[in-house]
Amino acid sequence: MSSGSLLALFGAMLIVALVPGPAVLAVIARTFSSGFSRGLMMIIGITLGDFIFILLALFGLSIISEILGTTFLIIKYASAAYLIWLGISLFKSKSSAEDIKVSKESSLLANLITGLMINLGNPKAIVFYIGLFPAFIDVNQVVTVDVMTIMGIATIAFGSVNICYALLALRAKKMLNNPDASSLINKTAGTIMVSTGALVAIKA
């Protein structure tokens, strides 16, 4: 793979990453309500999902998405239901001065798994990668180093953008450091989370 191809691939992924989707909305809501560490764990889970889809696309295993269609569907609706449940819990929660600092209603591992489920619940991401890669690389000549490089590019492109969104949410949260703002944040994050869950559920 040439440096030019890698740079072009990075640019294409970065452009796609900048467009907010269900994963970005979930990261923003989670960071807004529970702090950066939990938002970061969700980002890691989303990135792991990208790794899985990259491997499937590069090695021509998109057929697996059809064979496991029902499994992907279950994951999709399970992640949507969980996001909606989290959103309702946040919306109904009572706020105090401490709520704005950190909310520990879910573990770091739970947030990582949620991010992974959100991504795996969208098997059409494989189609995105299958359509993207041939324009920049010869998929028939891909070796291990190429795979690792592509994963690195995806991590930087999607991960950096998601982290920026999380940091913006964190900054907004710190600017509203009082009980009334905490209530507003919880309700806003809850609304975003419920909307994200609904979007995940209805997205084709």
Rank of each mutant, 00 (worst) to 15 (best):
F91L: 09
N178A: 14
T31Q: 08
L170S: 14
V102F: 12
G45V: 09
S103A: 08
L7Y: 05
A81N: 03
L83I: 08
I75S: 05
L108C: 01
N178D: 15
R30A: 13
I156L: 15
I113L: 15
I28C: 11
T188W: 12
M1W: 07
G11I: 13
I192K: 02
G69R: 07
S34A: 15
A97D: 08
Y82T: 09
S2K: 02
N140C: 03
A110E: 11
G152Y: 11
G190D: 08
M1P: 07
Y77N: 14
W85C: 02
I75H: 03
S79A: 15
K174H: 13
V27W: 01
G131I: 10
G39Q: 03
I156F: 12
M117Y: 09
S2G: 11
D50N: 14
L168H: 00
S96L: 03
N177G: 02
P20Y: 00
L6M: 09
T149A: 13
G49K: 03
G35T: 10
S65A: 11
P179I: 12
A189E: 11
L90G: 04
S95M: 03
L6P: 00
I28V: 15
V194Y: 01
M41N: 09
V147A: 12
S3P: 00
G35K: 11
I137G: 02
G35Y: 06
T70Q: 07
L7M: 06
V143P: 00
S107R: 02
I64H: 06
I43C: 09
V200C: 10
V194M: 14
G60Q: 08
I88S: 00
G39L: 05
A57D: 09
G39N: 03
Y77W: 14
A135C: 01
V147R: 00
V200Y: 01
T149R: 08
I43P: 04
I185R: 10
L116G: 09
L86I: 15
L25E: 04
K187Y: 11
A135N: 14
F128A: 11
L9A: 04
I192Q: 01
F133R: 06
G45K: 05
I163S: 03
Y82P: 01
L55Y: 09
I74N: 03
